[in-house]
Amino acid sequence: MSQKPVLSIKDLSVSFATEKGLCQAVKKVNFAVYEGKTLALVGESGCGKSVTSLAVMRLLPDLANVSSGSIHFNGQDLLTLNKNSMCSVRGNDIAMIFQEPLTALNPVFTIGEQIAEALLIHKRITKKQAKDRTCELLDRVRIPEARKRFDEYPFQLSGGMKQRALIAMALACEPKILIADEPTTALDVTIQAGILELMKELQKEMNMGIIFITHDLGVVAEIADAVSIMYAGEVIEEGDVYQIFENPRHPYTKGLLESMPTLQTQKGEKLKTIKGSVPNLFNRTEACNFENRCAYAKEVCRKEKPFLEEEASGAKVACHFHRTIS
């Protein structure tokens, strides 16, 4: 990967001001997204995947605050842009699709109006041109009878169709980066496959970089080129998709992979789980975050936090014992 990344995130930290105090949801996260490639951000609920992606869009909730780091896109730091310039990046250069297609569309505007809006905001075109382009897009994401669907309201579409409409909306301005926050989680498995296929196709066509957020390793294997595993707001392992699946270094990654059911799993056999739960983010300690759940934990894990170290293969892992484990 010698080419220049389209988007690179350096030392990004996000904290939430809550009644119980400051909660550091994302801590010193680094990653880069390349043209035409998909980076999967993987982790369990609450590990900071979505917060990271919202920080890139600068759409964090009012309570959240980026406490450090930079988000470089197109030669500028997105964190330094003013509100108006950020609006012209959103939806135009960086677009996002969300987890809940059922509620993500505005119920009182037609599908067509909502997709055309993205075009009308960013491109200098007439309403008529926007409508034609929208119909093309609807057709492109394989929504049948695009002309007719243009005038339909979200409640008239199925979940899969809504997600397709949201993809059409996100891709309307041919963004360079698409952030997909668990886009298939709320959908049936058969529809999931169709949506993933569609995203891969469109990625090839538009040569965009995708940040794909998921906790579903099956989906990761399907779509990702590079993978970053997040745990308790930090990236603990990263590498290309083969390295992660064939040779996981971090005990957490190993645990995740082992908890997936396979065709060899016998009937009645219990699926493996990772015991314990994510540490409290309010008082971060000097210990490794995973120490309390880790089968390999030793004295040093309680005293010193491991840094993300680069291996010869180019993969990175944050574990004191990654050599001995693999």
Partner: peptide, 29 residues
């Protein structure tokens, strides 16, 4: 707090547009 507001922001709608177009029509009910 609705998801559709976040979607509108994500497509680049300015804050006045989000409030006066997307939010107001829903709030009218």
């Amino acid at each position: 707090k609705s998801d559709y507001i976040r979607t509108a922001r994500a497509k680049g709608a300015s804050e006045p547009r989000v409030l006066f177009v997307h939010l107001l029509k829903n709030a009218m009910i």
